[in-house]
Design a protein around this nucleic acid. Structure first.
Length: 424
DNA sequence: TCTGGGGTCCTAGGACCC
DNA sequence: TCTGGGGTCCTAGGACCC
């Protein structure tokens, strides 16, 4: 048995934990740059505010119903997430942190337990330790546990818990779930399935296996097996090493000059280097991209991107930043209004493996030496202690392109100086 | 005026190896 | 004229997830 524990309206719930006045108000949280709605409390959902809606389009509703609107505060959500996960880790022998607000628990040893009762314990404990409401779904496969969780969320009479175990229970849940609501079936696959009159999860479970293998490939075949109660997605207890790391932002305003783009790209390159060092890894490929707005029809859309291999795998801020600047020169076109840029590092290798492999062109490529490594260590140490951005390269500058973040709440759990702030 | 960010896996096809 | 079998690596594109 697997349990899927999923936080309810996670970002909105985080805002409420530290600001109890919000309990009586609908709450929404915006994406970066205060662009789209990415989280809604139940009250906000029932006002008809859709996930992913641009904020400016629902401004009238937000205003009329006195909705509390927040910029996204990832320092807060990330820390709250780890509190929830730490609590969950005490409630099961194995836990897989699946996303910022979800975790699978291994329930296979709980055969003698009343799982409903245990689900209530999980909910109560997480609520008590963190203030975050969660729902719990339990079933013999991960896909079915996801489905159970969804039912627990959708039907108030379940009181946040849904356990499916017997063959009859599985069948009943499959019949009540449409294909597009199955974990792993997105828009394209739903379309294909609906054309074939496969409309419910029960239909998919009963579809000919060869057809599923052919049209939905291996991923679909696994989903089908899971729906039939055959578990083929095991618990993943350690997070696999990252294969790519991306830092990108939409700009608060349009940016036209190369100089401003350089400042943005420098900032993103430096962020990628920090993330690489946190992963204890080196990157061998670097991608830089810049883009105009996809929504601005008054001018031609431009998406400039370039990828190059680094002379020598590295996580050195200065080396990555230099390479990124050169690549930016190659894709920059004057006379455009840029709205977004980003830096992506890939070809990632663990530091331990690579430290012995030298580039053929090592001498020419200015391999990061001991001194550079020491500088990076100091940089990280200072920023860890005094806050990210306390020390940075002069090339990093967000003056001109800084994203909007006008409704940011306090970082209640990670900053002493903000702990008493409550903005409503 | 205003529209997010960060990932993964799979497949197909080409180039290449023995 | 006839031309096998079994692989790897890389990339682009498509699909999905939160």
């Amino acid at each position: 048995m697997f349990a899927l524990v999923d936080c309810n309206n996670f970002y909105a719930s985080c805002e409420r934990v530290f600001n109890p006045a919000l309990r009586l108000r609908p709450v929404v949280v915006l994406s970066n740059n205060d662009g789209c709605i990415i989280a809604r409390s139940e009250e906000a959902k029932s006002l008809g505010i859709q996930m992913g809606m641009p904020e400016f389009k629902c401004r009238p509703i937000l205003k009329t119903h006195d909705v509390a609107v927040f910029s996204s505060n990832f320092a807060l959500y990330g820390d709250m997430s780890s509190r929830v996960m730490m609590t969950l880790a005490t409630l099961a022998p194995e836990i897989e942190v699946y996303s910022i607000d979800e975790a699978f628990l291994d329930m296979s040893g709980f055969t003698r337990f009343d799982l409903m009762e245990y689900g209530r314990l999980i909910r109560r404990t997480v609520r008590q330790h963190t203030g975050i409401p969660v729902c719990v779904g339990m079933a013999p496969t991960k896909t079915l546990a996801k489905m159970a969780n969804r039912l627990a969320k959708k039907n108030p009479e379940y009181q946040g818990i849904c356990v499916i175990r017997s063959h009859a229970e599985i069948l009943s849940v499959l019949e009540r779930t449409r294909v597009e609501d199955i974990w792993g079936i997105g828009r394209q696959l739903s379309k294909l399935l609906l054309e074939k009159q496969i409309e419910s999860a029960a239909d998919l479970a009963a579809a000919p296996a060869a057809w599923v293998r052919k049209h939905l490939h291996i991923v679909g075949a696994r989903i089908q097996a899971e729906l039939q109660g055959k578990s083929c997605l095991p618990m993943e207890l350690v997070r696999p090493a990252k294969q790519s790391i991306c830092t990108s932002r939409s700009f608060g305003r349009s940016v036209t000059s190369l100089e401003e783009l350089q400042q943005a790209v420098a900032t993103f390159a430096a962020k990628c280097a920090v993330k690489l060092r946190k992963e204890n890894a080196l990157a061998s490929l670097l991608t830089v991209f810049i883009a105009t707005s996809p929504f601005d029809n008054s001018c031609e859309r431009y998406w400039g991107t370039r990828t190059a291999s680094l002379p020598c795998p590295t996580n050195d801020t200065i080396a990555i930043l230099r390479a990124a600047q050169t690549m930016l020169d190659g894709i920059f076109l004057a006379g455009r209004s840029y709205k977004k840029a980003g830096v992506l590092v890939s070809g990632i290798i663990p530091k331990t493996v690579c430290s012995t492999t030298l580039s053929l062109f090592a001498e020419a490529a200015a391999v990061p030496n001991e001194r550079d490594k020491k500088i990076m260590q100091l940089l990280d140490a200072i920023n860890n202690r005094y806050g990210s951005g306390a020390v940075r390269l002069a090339a990093e500058n967000s003056e001109s392109w800084k994203p909007h973040q006008e409704r940011l709440s306090a970082r209640y759990t990670t900053r002493w100086d903000e702990i008493l702030e409550v903005k409503v």
